[in-house]
Design a binder for these strands. Structure first.
Lengths: 218, 218
DNA sequence: CCTACCGATCGGTAGG
DNA sequence: CCTACCGATCGGTAGG
């Protein structure tokens, strides 16, 4: 216990993770070398290996700490005891803000998840599913017709699509910033979901569908 | 002109591009080796270099032919002379179908565009901007309040977010396929956009905003 | 002398 | 925490 790690050990790890997240986001995980990470951090490559076991360790830490922060946001909003629509708007607002300040980690989570080993992917995607479920539950509560038509999860993913995709094209400028985008997304989503209809039963070319076909077919 | 290329030369190129698109989508562009591409095609690596100059040539062809197909879809729908809402629904339906059958190329376009050299990125992103402009123009026509608030392009990008993101999470199953998702996206979007409001003027910490602040501040 | 490839190996660089 | 390296594999190309 005496001596312990150098004072800045955890700080150094955080700094490395920040630089690595930016580089992975900009060049992809396989397209980033450990030399590049070391250089960005002002460290030698061997020094890097003092803080992290290997390149893969960086990837897992970036993805996992980000998704855990998102789960924390969900828990915090759930604890506020808001009505469903305000809860959903609160979630959207917090997520947009979090993505804006952790945009590199978020891009790594969404684009480099394919490089995770099964055991890590399972754990991280499991946390992701819990986050999605919190949104889907609120959506099913707000719009029962969507929940009953099994559309709560697909609809939730359309919402995540709008938010996630923002960070691939949106550059804050004089007219619009991230904070301003959140209510636009929320208004569009909350205004549109009431109009979503369950799709007709899928066409079954040979045998008749379980439920009655449309008049034309009969 | 006599003899010319072997009968299957163009077919072989198409087959290579399809395999390369799948591998790039699954492992990323830097994470895919030319040996893997060759093996997937049942060719030796030198044979691959008979059809394409280098690995980068594959990337450019995959991205460019995909975005050119999308531009063609836009042109076809424009030629139908539909009313704005039907035109937008037609665009959404065609794009979802095209993405579904070209999902690997689409993923390469969206995730590996960062590996394009400036001259290629400029050309390909230019075509992409033309596609986005076609959607944004229809949206501005349908909902003038959105066009006047300079929100046509951001709103268009939210629509693309829903559609693009679908192909990262959606797996067609017994209950829902890609064809069924298109009208859900269209209903949500067309139902939601009328409720989108222009954001209030951005906060300017020191000097007063150009337009009147809210009552509380005054 | 062309094409359509093959087996083998090049110069460099990756992660470690 | 550095210089100096390794086993392997990368993208690309030689001779035949």
């Amino acid at each position: 216990m005496s001596r312990g790690r150098a004072a800045g050990y955890e700080d150094q790890r955080e700094l490395i993770l920040r630089h690595a997240a930016r580089l992975f986001a900009e060049r992809g995980y396989p397209g980033t070398s450990m030399n590049e990470v070391a250089q960005a951090c002002g460290l030698s490559k061997p020094a890097l290996y003092h803080y992290f076991r290997d390149k893969y360790d960086l990837l897992v830490h970036i993805a996992e700490s980000h998704i855990v922060r998102l789960r924390t946001l969900v828990t915090e909003v759930a604890a506020q005891g808001l009505a469903p629509e305000e809860r959903l708007r609160g979630l959207i607002g917090r997520f947009v803000r979090e993505y804006a300040q952790a945009r590199y980690a978020h891009r790594v989570l969404t684009e480099d998840v394919k490089f995770l080993r099964p055991e890590d992917a399972e754990r991280i995607l499991g946390t992701e599913r819990a986050v999605v479920a919190a949104f889907a539950g609120t959506i099913a509560e707000l719009w029962p017709h969507v929940g009953q038509a099994q559309l709560a999860k697909p609809t939730t993913m359309l919402l995540f699509g709008m938010i996630n995709w923002m960070f691939t094209w949106f550059r804050p400028d004089g007219g619009l910033d991230y904070e301003a985008m959140a209510p636009i997304v929320a208004d569009l989503f909350c205004g549109g979901v009431p109009l979503v209809k369950a799709p007709p039963a899928r066409k079954a070319p040979r045998q008749p569908a379980r439920r009655a076909r449309q008049a034309k077919a009969g």
